[in-house]
């Protein structure tokens, strides 16, 4: 399978990645090669095979409904790029 420039642009946008115009062709080529590798899967007969999401057939454990965390806002916001009045700041969000 081969990816076009437009595919790269579409998925880069979906993944919110800026890709320089000059690099798009190289990404298209590299990604196409990788999909070439992945294409071996097409030939595999997987009829009736259960998809495997986890190594084990284990079951989700449930946590007791207890408040165990306390306020660490100042600690966590020390590493934030931009805060004011306890809020994380981002460019204006449109509704």
């Amino acid at each position: 399978m081969s990816l076009e420039r437009s595919d790269v642009e579409r998925i880069a946008h979906l993944a919110r990645l800026e890709v320089a115009e000059k690099d798009i062709s190289e990404y298209a080529r590299n990604l196409s090669n990788i999909f070439g590798l992945v294409a071996q899967l097409e030939a595999v007969d997987t009829d009736g095979v259960k998809p495997m999401a986890h190594p084990f057939d284990a079951v989700q454990r449930l946590r007791a409904d207890e408040v165990t965390e306390s306020n660490q806002r100042d600690h966590f916001q020390q590493i934030a790029p931009k805060v004011a009045d306890g809020l994380y700041l981002v460019p204006k969000v449109l509704d």
Binding site: D7, L17, I34
Partner: peptide, 26 residues
Amino acid sequence: LMDLYKRSRGEGFGPEVKRRIMIGTY
């Protein structure tokens, strides 16, 4: 906001990480 996302991620991640994110997204 879009510029914040795209440039922070575009500039913050190297090419191999971007490739894998793109494969996964696809």
